[in-house]
């Protein structure tokens, strides 16, 4: 039987402090329940047996920290994940965005890019891609590298095609990528207006104003305090009537800004900044 490693709340605090002091990343306001699972999972894959060893390696080996950072964030994503959300974007948001001469969109926490490619496809189909600039950011540099490559594992394409169709997509999905052995390469022209960069929602400032901020399934990893901080960041990055899209299980319930937004689609979790 595999022996169980465990880590106490105080141990976790110590580890987070080591990271903050050495590398400036502050995970102290992340959801603990999920973070503990990630740390235990990391220790398991990296074959680290004790918290003492974990702290030792984190303190002394920057490359070890880079590996830690890569695995500690939850990077799972999909193209056209939650088809109902994309359907709502098509119907309720894109027609409004069409009024702007330049459409600026921010994907905060874009992971390996699948969500961004999906947005580009929607924009292309709505005839808006030419006028759009899509900023795709993530805390995890390994994710940004992947997202830049435009490569998606081929074996997911069947699921993504189904998602796309459920979202109201009418085109032949296979025209959006070229298959190369086990990889699918998303067409380069679809990606032409994406700007990738590393950005940490905990410590970095806003950097532009956007007609749409998409931050899906990132806030669930933050506690209420940090969620509120990020909502302020988004609020200040939106013009009046600018859109904010969250994950299906995320809400504005716990931010003091909840009255400053109106609901565009309650199930798809699309909101709009009031005047």
């Amino acid at each position: 039987m595999k022996e169980k490693i465990d880590i106490s709340a105080a141990d976790l605090d110590d580890v987070l402090l080591v990271i903050r002091n050495n590398y400036g990343y502050d995970f102290s306001n992340y959801s603990r329940a999920s973070l503990i699972r990630r740390v235990l999972r990391f220790m398991d894959t990296a074959r680290i047996k004790t918290v003492y060893d974990l702290r030792f390696h984190l303190t002394n080996e920057p490359a070890f920290f880079a590996y830690f950072l890569q695995t500690i964030t939850v990077n799972v994503t999909e193209m056209f994940r939650d088809p109902a959300f994309y359907h709502s974007l098509r119907e309720k948001v894109l027609p409004k965005l069409a009024a702007y001469p330049i459409i600026k969109i921010w994907h905060a926490g874009c992971s390996s890019g699948e969500e961004v490619y999906s947005m580009c496809i929607l924009l292309e189909e709505a005839g808006l891609l030419n006028r759009a600039v899509i900023y795709a950011t993530d805390i995890n540099p390994a994710n940004i590298e992947k997202a830049r490559s435009g490569i998606v594992p081929m074996h997911y394409m069947k699921d993504y095609t189904a998602n796309y169709q459920q979202s109201g997509g009418k085109e032949d999905f296979s025209t959006y990528y070229t298959a190369r052995y086990e990889n699918a390469l998303i067409r380069k022209d679809l990606r032409r207006n994406i700007v990738f960069s590393q950005h940490n929602l905990v410590t970095d400032q806003g950097f532009n104003e956007f007609q749409l901020v998409c931050c899906r399934n990132v806030l669930i990893y933050f506690n209420k305090t940090l969620q509120n901080h990020v909502f302020h960041l988004f609020y200040n990055s939106l013009p009046p009537m600018g859109y904010l899209a969250l994950g299906m299980k995320e809400s504005l319930l716990f931010t003091d800004l909840r009255d400053k937004f109106e609901t565009v689609d309650a199930t798809a979790k699309i909101f709009k900044r009031k005047k």
């Binding site: 959801s31 603990r32 329940a33 999920s34 399934n217 669930i220």
Partner: peptide, 18 residues
């Protein structure tokens, strides 16, 4: 499509990991 977790302050957290 989410894991359901519980925090020390007896609130729920959702998680979209593997």
């Amino acid at each position: 499509n989410y894991h359901l977790l519980v925090e020390a302050d007896k609130t729920f957290s959702l998680d979209y990991s593997e």
